[in-house]
């Protein structure tokens, strides 16, 4: 686990104000891969500005769950409502939702044939129809934010893993998403690079971004999460505020899992 520099105090768990509405709502979501029941009756309400960390053993369905939220995977039962829009097979709605939801992947998935700047401006230019000049300015703004403006004209292959992941975060931010999904953003990184990526994510959290983050970085969870979710075998087993989650896990499977990842 990496020690993060102390940051400005984050807002405590958000007051649940009914009027603000949920950023994401999953109701009775089920998903199968063929015969294999990968998500089992998932219910989750994420409020605007809320930061949720999801952990659990390999194969428990963490990636599948967050990938359903921007329709990289399709669910078969139940409903998923993102920013007030229900996900259906309607392609227009899927496009709408994808414009509101940013995603970062374990392996960065930068486009190798485009420069860093072009990686960032591609979607603003082609999806938001932004003039190139404005897109460049926007991209430089976010590159400064993730602290690598000097890499703008390099290609992804010339950057370190930590730098690539920060570019991937900046690329998602250029679409001005209301929600950010992270799927193990630091688990492909060398330990010394984990910190710089987590710091970027912490500063995003401080700005009030709604975040769903699959990670086993428990220091990060303690520092920024409003709630921590534990998944196993396609189910949400336990969900609690970080303090309670870590100090007083309710379920045997959670205890076992925590002892395994905190143990070493």
């Amino acid at each position: 686990m990496s020690n993060l520099a102390p940051s400005a105090a984050l807002a405590p768990a958000l007051p649940v104000s009914a009027s603000s509405g949920a950023a994401i709502e999953l109701v009775g979501v089920n998903k199968w891969y063929g015969e294999f029941h990968v998500l089992k009756d998932i219910n989750l309400r994420v409020h605007r500005g809320e930061r949720i960390v999801i952990c659990g053993p390999s194969g428990s369905g963490k990636s599948t769950m967050i990938r359903c939220i921007n329709r990289l995977e399709e669910h078969q039962q139940g409903s998923i409502i993102v920013d007030g829009i229900e996900l259906t097979n309607d392609l227009k709605r899927i496009d709408e939702i994808r414009r509101e939801v940013g995603m970062c992947f374990q392996h960065f998935n930068l486009f190798p044939h485009l420069t860093i700047l072009e990686n960032l401006t591609l979607a603003p230019i082609w999806v938001r129809k932004m003039p190139k000049k404005d897109a460049d300015e926007l991209a430089m703004h976010f590159l400064r934010k993730v602290k690598i403006p000097e890499q703008a004209n390099k290609y992804p292959g010339q950057l370190s893993g930590g730098q690539q992941q920060r570019v991937a975060i900046a690329r998602a931010l250029c679409m001005k998403p209301k929600i950010m999904l992270f799927d193990e953003p630091t688990s492909a990184l060398d330990p010394e690079m984990v910190k710089e990526v987590l710091e970027t994510m912490v500063s995003l959290a401080e700005e009030g971004m709604t975040m769903l983050c699959v990670t086993h970085e428990m220091g990060f969870a303690r520092q920024v999460a409003n709630r921590v979710i534990f998944m196993d075998a396609g189910q949400i087993i336990e969900m609690n505020e970080p303090e309670a989650f870590f100090s007083n896990p309710q379920h045997e499977r959670t205890k076992l899992f925590l002892s395994q990842i905190l143990g070493h």
Partner: peptide, 27 residues
């Protein structure tokens, strides 16, 4: 081409044809 390239393009809101010609094809 790794599937992640298409997924990244989709998650940014690019249409399948845009993803194909702008992201998948050049590499």
């Amino acid at each position: 081409t790794p599937a992640g390239q298409f997924e990244a393009a989709s998650s940014l809101g690019l249409k399948p044809a845009q993803a194909f010609f702008l992201v998948i094809l050049p590499p």
